[in-house]
Design a protein around this nucleic acid. Sequence first.
DNA 1: CGTGTGTTTGAAAGTAGTCAAAGTCAGTGG
DNA 2: CCACTGACTTTGACTACTTTCAAACACACG
Lengths: 253, 253
Amino acid sequence: MFTDTAMSASTPIKPEPFKVACSSCNLRELCLPVGLSQENIDQIDNMVGQRKQVPRGEALFRSGDPFQSIFAVRTGFFKTCVSSEDGRDQVTGFQMAGELLGLDGISSDHHSCDAVALEDSQVCVIPFSRLEELSREFNELQRQFHKIMSREIVRDHGVMLLLGSMRAEERLAAFLLNLTQRLQARGFSASSLVLRMTREEIGSYLGLKLETVSRTFSKFQDDGLLEVKQRQIRIIDQAGLQQLVNGTNCAAN
Amino acid sequence: MFTDTAMSASTPIKPEPFKVACSSCNLRELCLPVGLSQENIDQIDNMVGQRKQVPRGEALFRSGDPFQSIFAVRTGFFKTCVSSEDGRDQVTGFQMAGELLGLDGISSDHHSCDAVALEDSQVCVIPFSRLEELSREFNELQRQFHKIMSREIVRDHGVMLLLGSMRAEERLAAFLLNLTQRLQARGFSASSLVLRMTREEIGSYLGLKLETVSRTFSKFQDDGLLEVKQRQIRIIDQAGLQQLVNGTNCAAN
DNA sequence: CGTGTGTTTGAAAGTAGTCAAAGTCAGTGG
DNA sequence: CCACTGACTTTGACTACTTTCAAACACACG
């Protein structure tokens, strides 16, 4: 039923032959095809290879794997993390439906981070050489792809700002607002969410220890900003969180 | 003598009409043309518009400026920084000869950070639409440009790792090693350098206060790792710095 | 030679980290 | 079906690191 073409050296993941055309995918407004004309979207359909299932806890790719494709999250949730020679590691992002994975691999033909599914997930496989070919032909697609890479750079700069100049509460508030905003864009509630990641993963992303994350959640709850039941979060005072992020009292770094 | 075509809305900077062909530029091994065949390099020559002088302290572009071109540093030294609505700001990088500036602008057709010259500098102006045109035609160039964008993403992930999981000494050591390595690639001494930026700018980049940076320099000097005379740095024990970066004693975050 | 910007250093305060222990929850196997 | 296990979370007490505030110092520039 499934043919195994194992993209990732480290984990043999079953590809799924069934394909949903980008043009009829409900993520087309959030994913690579954003803003493309119908004609161009039809071209993208040609480009997207197959879909691939990634069970919770498994890696879509790992640092060092040869780079061949980028991936668009169709369903599910991922984290990406880098690690240094010594054991340090850092979560560099969390990706949800419509977001791309694997752009790091272009620079050296090998991935430089791990992408791990935090829940059972499905991705669309986009062979990079096909993408380059088609974007030579269709300049709308070319421009779109460049925008996506650039957006990733801009996003990373935002994370640097967070890591370099915010205190724990500000970081967590910014994180929650960012998450809910992205969830809302996908049709989910703006005020109620289930975290897919552990306190430790949040901490790694935010440059904090897991205990600090936990304490900060508790403080937000005491302050009436959130209701926290383990990973179930309800946002009670969004404006309050926003105010924390924009410095009520902060000094520039 | 100089025609003023003012790329940046905020600062009128004199363009310089004289052009050095990429093919005869001594930065070609460090800059956009890396690895391109002679034929392709000749094509790049067509793409690079003019050179532009940026005096120390002035901005090549500022956040919000319309995006039209990317820039390659020919001589000099830049910093890029982002800022949030409230006054927080964060240096996101320092760029030296051969490195590109402006990739952030592609995502929204407007720059999202400031690029400021830390010494009198010269950049090559590369109109982005020309770059896209040519990279549709020459796939070596296309690939090269994609690699450069991807490399920026990978670099940013490295900075996140630094900001998220290293202590002050480790950050500064990593910073110095990175700087000297890049300077060395440009033919400068591996052990002796003059910092182009203030303690405050280093601190912003590393997520530290200027006093912490200063103290850490002093400590490195006391420990016999460096000789520090204001901005004049001599590295005495490179291996010692390296050892600091690779955790002698660290716990993963 | 003064002025101003940038740097160094000290002392005190504050924030986040460390270590430890108890609590929660989902999944497993008796 | 329920108790057990293991992974994750919460909380407390204490420690360590970085920041803050303040003052003196160095150096480049006009």
